[in-house]
């Protein structure tokens, strides 16, 4: 059992990395954008976290990051669902049992998860458009004037998914390496996984 101070330090570092990933889309460094789309840093963090955790831990991480991302953009439709699903599925992959952990597999997992998450978000928008009326918008805390049309939703989905998947899978290994090194420090102290 690692020393308590070691665990607290690791936890603080984890929290800080999560916060930075949620804030990262606000910044637009050169080279970080493809057709106006940035990498999906909160999703990448959830994948990196969930790779070696239980499905429960992955889901909770997804819910938490989803709530943070909701706070920075808009609460409805929520990001909690898509990120929770991503956390759950990534953890279920049981990566250390079935796959070697290397750059290519991380990139591929992130690519697939981005496609799944963006499709879920498009479905959330579509359900809102189909089943909510203008008056309901006041009841839920909707930030816009009206709901987008289905054609706009799926056109946005097309444009966003490919660019986000490419960028996120390219930057994924760059995020994964420092995070894994940080978390391995704690595991080395733990001894056996």
């Amino acid at each position: 059992m690692a020393a308590l101070s070691q665990r607290i330090l690791t936890g603080l570092g984890t929290a800080l990395s999560a916060l930075l990933c949620v804030l990262a889309p606000w910044l637009r460094w050169p080279g970080m954008e493809l057709l106006g789309v940035s990498p999906d840093w909160p999703l990448m963090w959830v994948v990196c976290w969930s790779l070696r955790r239980t499905p429960w831990q992955g889901t909770v991480a997804g819910l938490g990051m989803g709530m943070l991302q909701d706070g920075l953009s808009a609460p409805e439709p929520t990001h909690m669902m898509s990120l929770a699903v991503v956390g759950f599925l990534t953890a279920r992959l049981q990566k250390q049992r079935y796959m070697q952990e290397d750059f290519i597999s991380i990139a591929l997992i992130i690519f697939g998860m981005v496609v799944i998450a963006e499709t879920l978000r498009a479905l959330q928008w579509s359900l809102m458009t189909l089943f909510l009326s203008t008056w309901d918008l006041d009841l839920i805390s909707f930030s816009g004037d009206a709901l987008p049309s289905l054609s706009t939703i799926w056109a946005t989905h097309q444009r966003v998914t490919l660019s986000s998947a490419i960028l996120s899978s390219l930057w994924g290994p760059a995020l994964h390496l420092p995070l894994r090194t940080w978390w391995d420090r704690e595991r080395a102290g733990d001894g056996v996984e």
Binding site: P25, L27, Q69, S73, A74, T156
Partner: peptide, 14 residues
């Protein structure tokens, strides 16, 4: 403008 949007579906800036 100090920040752009935090996700891909909303068009916002800060």
């Amino acid at each position: 403008v100090i920040a752009r949007q935090a996700d891909h579906w909303w068009q916002q800036f800060t």
